[in-house]
Design a binder for these strands. Structure first.
Ligand code: FES
Ligand code: FES
Lengths: 141, 141
DNA sequence: ACTATACTTGACCAATTTAGTCAGGTATGT
DNA sequence: ACATACCTGACTAAATTGGTCAAGTATAGT
């Protein structure tokens, strides 16, 4: 049960972006240097974030990325969804009536994992990028 | 962010065990058949559960496994700990003061992941095997 | 027009982890 | 003795992860 780098980096990068995009677009190169994430990898991540309209890109010299919404409108759910960091606790297909063992009924633990999934998702739905920014400036005092 | 089979199977198997161990020890073979889990794999799992004293083994003909505590005393945390299904959301070593990027300070998302970890663990600490049993008999009505 | 910057796309790969299998044991009730 | 069932460790195929590499395209500034 762990997070992948993709999800982790996506959030990191967006926090960085949120802090600096007021003045100018932020280049991936800058984020790469500040956060210590491979540039090539960041490109993959941002292409996904762009597809889900979490960021906008500005090409050319002095170009870069900008948030397309306000920090309080970007929830962790949105970010994770964009980069395919999905929470999958059940083994079976939820829609199907079959269980994970191939039997006709759901297995004895199915409900448990489903509850867990909800529990985790609740967390992600509550947290916004803004929360993280606050948290971070607080630390700096 | 997903669960491994080890954790999943461990819980499955223990629910099965809890339901049937009142009368006789339950053999892994039976669990294997009822839950559709490979016998060899179950053996690996139970050796770990035994090491953490969640189950007791009884050898010989008509032998098998029995819970060593009452279902309400066995929390999911205990099970997961036994089979090394650990929740790891932060990247860095928690004790260290260094961040995940190797820098001197914790990264901007560290606190977030730490909160998440707590959030998930709370769930596991609350749920006991007994809760699962109830849940399952309710479904059968 | 040229050039540097920075986004864009897709293929590729090495390392790790997972989810098991296989092949032998050893203990014990009947 | 012998069948049952626990016990142990080595091994492996497949999937996933966490990237790298290569070859673009668009745009701002000179
Ligand atoms: S997890 Fe859904 S049936 Fe087992
Ligand atoms: S996760 Fe702990 S420092 Fe980044």
């Amino acid at each position: 049960m762990k997070l992948t780098s993709k999800g982790r980096y996506a959030v990191m990068a967006l926090v960085d972006l949120a802090r600096f995009d007021n003045i100018n677009p932020v280049s991936l190169r800058d984020i790469s240097l500040r956060q210590g994430i491979s540039l090539d990898y960041l490109e993959q991540i941002f292409s996904k974030l762009k597809k889900d309209q979490i960021v906008k890109s500005i090409r050319g010299t002095q170009g870069g990325y900008v948030l397309s919404k306000k920090p309080n409108e970007i929830k962790l759910t949105n970010i994770f969804h964009a980069v395919d960091e999905k929470v999958k606790t059940v083994q079976c297909k939820k829609e199907s009536k079959k269980g994970c063992n191939g039997k006709a009924t759901k297995c004895v633990t199915h409900n448990l994992w489903d509850e867990l999934e909800t529990h985790i998702n609740t967390f992600f739905e509550k947290k916004s990028l803004e929360d993280l920014l606050k948290n971070n400036t607080e630390q700096r005092t």
